[in-house]
Design a protein around this nucleic acid. Sequence first.
RNA 1: CGGGAAGUGGCGCAGCUUGGUUAGCGCGCAGCGUUCGGGACGCUGAGGUCGCGGGUUCAAAUCCCGCCUUCCCGACCA
Length: 525
Amino acid sequence: MTTRPPPRPRPTGPPCSTSRASTPTGPSSASSSSASAPAAEPVGPAGPGAGSVARMAKAPILTPQAEDFPRWYQDAVAKAELADNGPVRGTMVIRPYGWAIWERMQAEVDERIKATGTQNAYFPVLIPESYIEREKAHVEGFSHEFWTVTHGGGKELEEPVVVRPTSETVFGIYMAKWVQSYRDLPLLLNQWANVMRWELRPRLFLRTSEFLWQEGHTAHATEADAAAFAARVLHDVYEDFMVDVLAIPVLTGRKTSRERFPGATNTMTLEAMMRDGKALQMGTSHELGRNFAEAFDIRYLDDNGDQQLCWTTSWGVSTRMVGGLIMTHGDDRGLRLPPRVAPVQVVVLVVRDEQGAGERARLIVEELRAAGVRAELDARVDTSFGRRAVDWELKGVPVRLEVGPRDLANMSLTLVRRDHEGKDTIPLDGVGSRVADLLDDIQASLLHEARLRRDGGTAEVTSLDDAVEAARTGFARIPWSAVGDEGEDRLAEHGVTVRCLQRADGGLPAADDEPDLVAVVARAY
RNA sequence: CGGGAAGUGGCGCAGCUUGGUUAGCGCGCAGCGUUCGGGACGCUGAGGUCGCGGGUUCAAAUCCCGCCUUCCCGACCA
C-alpha cells in the first residue's frame, strides 16, 4: 500500500521478458530466474506451509498488488475472464463470468428497488439535443461528455440526437405528461440501461464510455417527501446491498457543491476504500429540487385545486461496482468473491477419477444444489490439478471441495476456503448444511476484514497538510470548517478531493452548512 | 485533451538502428504417450494481412506521413 518499493530489477516475467541483448532462450532465463527467485516478493512471513514455497518459486500469476496496483487490477480482470476492451475506445466487452457477477448484482439491487414501490420501465437511448438543453446546469455539466448522433439513414438529421449520458430529461418530459394530480404522486420509476459518456481515460468497469446501470427517477409532491425518498434509496437499497451482499463497507454522505450532480440540489454518495487506499464512488442519490420540474413543467393539481411544481430525485449504481468488488476484496491470487454475489459459490473438483471420485463429486454437487448452494462440478481430470485450483482461485470462488481417492478412502473431503490460507478435512456426511453455514461465515469475514482495513486506513486530522499526507495511503477525516471552498482547491492541487461530508457520528447531514460537519477526503478513482 | 511509452500468431516478447530469400522465442492451443493431492513432462503439430491507411524503394515488420488502439502521469467524470 505504501507504494514505492525499491524499484526491483524485474520481478515479474523472468522466463522471457528478461532478455534484451542476448539470446532469448535457455541460458539467460536460467541465470535470471536464479537471480530473481530470492528477490521474489516476500509474499509475507505470514505465508506458511509448503504450498506457498512452491508457489513462490514460480512467476506470480498476477502482478502483486504492492508492486503495481493498477496493473494487478488489469491482470485480475483478464485472468478471471471478466471483460475485454471493446473495439471502440472506452467500450467494454463483458465476458460470461463478469456478466454473471453483474446479473447477481442486478437481481439483488432490483429486488430492493422494487421493495420501495418503484416500477421498472424503459426509455430510449437517443435523446433530442434540445431536451438536454432545457436544464441549464445539466447541459453545462454534461456537454463535454456527449456522444452525438448527427446522421441517420445516410442523411444529416435536422436535429442532432444525444446518446443518453443519463435520462433526467426524457423522464422529465414523460413525467410531465403522466402526472396530473397529487393522486398520481409519488411517481416512482426506474430503468436498467446503458449510457454513454465521453471518457478521456477509460478503465474496465471503473470508467468506460459505455456502461450499464440502473437509473431511478421519481417525482414527489413535497420537498420533504423527495428528500426522504432519496435518502431511503441511499440506505435501504444501496447501502444495504453493498454491505450485505458485496461485503463492502461504505461511507454515506453528502457531496460538496463542486462535486454535485449537474442540476441537483443535493447529491448523496456511497464511498468505499479500495485496497490501495483510494476511494471509489459506488453509487449516488440526488435530490433535484424543482430544477427539472421547472424545465419540463412537471406539475400537479393539489387537493386545493392549485397548480404545484413537483420535486424530483434520481439515483443510480453501475457496472463500476464490479470494479469496486474486485479492488475491495481481491488479493495477489485473484478475486475473492463474497458468497452472496458469487455466481459459483462452491466448486467441487475431482482430483482424479478413481475409486468413484467422479460420481461422488456429482452427487455432492447435487446435494449442495438441493441445499440452495450455487455449486459447480469441475471434472476436467485431463487438466492438471494445480492448474484448475489456480483457475478457480483467480475467479474468486469462495469454497473449493476436492474429491479424490484419498478422501474417499476416509469418507471425507478436502475443503479450501478462498478467504484465507489452509485446507481442512471434513466428513462426507452433511456437506450441504456444513457448506451453507461456511458460506455465511466467509461472507461475514470478508466484510469484517474490509472494515478493519478501511478503519485502519482512516486518519483523524485537523489540518489540510495532515489530510494530504493521510490521503497518500488512505482516508482522512477533517473538520469541514477547516477545509471550505479554498481548502478544496488546496487539496485538489495534491490530487485529493472531499469525498463526502458527514456528521461527526457518520450520519447524513441535512445541509452543507450544518455546524460541526466532518469532511472525508481521499484520492479517488 | 496535454506529457511519456508501446502496438509483431490467443498472451508476453525478440527482430527494426545499418530495408534483402522460409519473421523467431516462451507461454497457451491440438494429437499421442508418461503423469496426476498446488500453475506437470516428452514428442509431434496448428496458428502471423508484422494495428490501419498512404508514401519512398527493384524490395518495407524495418524508413517517412496520417489515423486508430492500449498503458503510465495530469486536468473531467458513475
